[in-house]
Design a binder for these strands. Sequence first.
DNA 1: TCCTTCAGTTAAGTTATATTTAACTGATCA
DNA 2: TGATCAGTTAAATATAACTTAACTGAAGGA
Lengths: 315, 315
Amino acid sequence: MPDRLPPLTALRAFDAAARHMSFAKAADELHVTPAALSFQIKSLEAHLGAPLFRRLNRAVELTEAGHALAPGASDGFQTLASAWRAAERTQDNQTLTVTAGPAFTAKWLAPRLYEFAQTHPEIELRFSASLKLMDFGRDAIDVAIRFGRSADEGLFSIPLAEEWVCPVMTPAMAASYPTPESLMDAPLIFDDSISFIKPKADWETWFKAMGLTFAPTYGPRFSQADHALDAALAGVGVVLGRRALVVKDLDDGRLVAPFPTAINTGVRFRFLCAQGAEDRPQIAAFRAWMMREIDKTAHITDGLTLIPSREIAAR
Amino acid sequence: MPDRLPPLTALRAFDAAARHMSFAKAADELHVTPAALSFQIKSLEAHLGAPLFRRLNRAVELTEAGHALAPGASDGFQTLASAWRAAERTQDNQTLTVTAGPAFTAKWLAPRLYEFAQTHPEIELRFSASLKLMDFGRDAIDVAIRFGRSADEGLFSIPLAEEWVCPVMTPAMAASYPTPESLMDAPLIFDDSISFIKPKADWETWFKAMGLTFAPTYGPRFSQADHALDAALAGVGVVLGRRALVVKDLDDGRLVAPFPTAINTGVRFRFLCAQGAEDRPQIAAFRAWMMREIDKTAHITDGLTLIPSREIAAR
DNA sequence: TCCTTCAGTTAAGTTATATTTAACTGATCA
DNA sequence: TGATCAGTTAAATATAACTTAACTGAAGGA
């Protein structure tokens, strides 16, 4: 589609000159002599049929045509440069950049990092804790862990373990609240991080699953799941813990889940990477390692009754 | 900033090949032989140190590196092409593309078009009726007429006439409603197009300016000012007409403004064009012509009392 | 005033890059 | 089996890009 472009070297010279507002500096940037740069810009102006710069005593300024061209030129070359960097990055099998939300980073990745580094000393792992959607091309991201229901178009995407929630607390606190009914008097912690999912997976839903009608609203609220868990770990109260985030603490006995009924949210964490990137050694290794780690803690679901939130909502 | 780019000709060859998924078609697009194209891509692959295409029996497909590069490359070249077109357009003094909202287009520009064409037969005028913000670089727009209070950064911007509103109606209808008080029983039309402006300029405000307390809510509502005016012209009722949009109809006697009190909204239409473009012949001509047209109807404000909406709100 | 410096230009010659022509490979398909 | 298609290769050539070196014209300090 892009037809009739001027000579690209000349356009590049113009871009550098426009950014620096100086031919000399532009020549420097491109590692050519000022003469070459001057010539390139002259040739570009010849192509256009009009000057792009107004040559002043000791400076240059853009003409109207130059003003029209400069921002797009800069933009275009930046896009090309970042695309090229993305292509170069695919040749790098030493580093692996993973992005995940703060909660998953803190409660799943961080505690397991040491183990990954042991198994794959050749891979330099980098983290970018952020929830905003990333473009695998533009941003320097290899793998994203995202929480959601559907697979994204045009990406390699595999679901991780089912995400259920159930009440978790410190062993000490569990002693004081032996039954689901007794939890109605317990200090409840609210994790608002999953309040957006459609059939709710909140305290009211869980009590409903237990045959109880109770819609608690008072208690500390956290917008980030890891903060809610930290509060529970500190003995502040009881929280509806998300499987992926509590599995380690349950395994290590820092938290317990005394009631064997969990709400299956229907939403999962997903492993995402660019189409075709799933075979790159460090990405394949990371994926295999994640899968192994999840398998290791699969037993946590044993003896639990999972009730889909959809089913509870329908009652 | 953009450092270490591969040879741009080679990158361009890659872009064409990736878009067509065929070296032959890409060679065709770039008007070179397939051999040249093959060579360019080979050189790009050498720069990267890895293949970008997998050569199959009778087709090519992108490798992972190719997948990483292709979208950005296409994007980048498209940006460059459109920037170049924008620069080319500044050399064109035959055409003039103006964008304005539907109401201004219908009620100000359209009725005066013929006259402009008479005075400037050499200029081919094009219209793009849209309210969305335009990028003078990207979109093929020379002049924008926009309604607002502040000037935009980095643009050439001059305010047009002060925009006031006052009740307008057909002469026939004016006969039945001789006083401001009587308007309280008149069929009132609501123009929601200026409902966003801060010190309101609505019916309640106008009645307040007349010392009357009346907040009408029933009556036909229009989201576009020109539709509200069309309704008034059809004799449906009385509308608070905006100066720029009613001036022609008042001048021609199709509408009358029997009450000499108008609300000064403090907001104006503005003439916008790219910085430096204000001197291009067709833009300068269009601007001068607009200013003359506004001057021609300046007398419409004679005898009117303009009360700033701010002042009415403060009462 | 004059001389120096700065920023960009010009011309001639050189080097590097891009392109063509023409012969070649290897797979598909009638 | 042979025609055709899609892409490759090699050698020759044309073109574009760059350098060196000399030049212009204005600003600014001694």
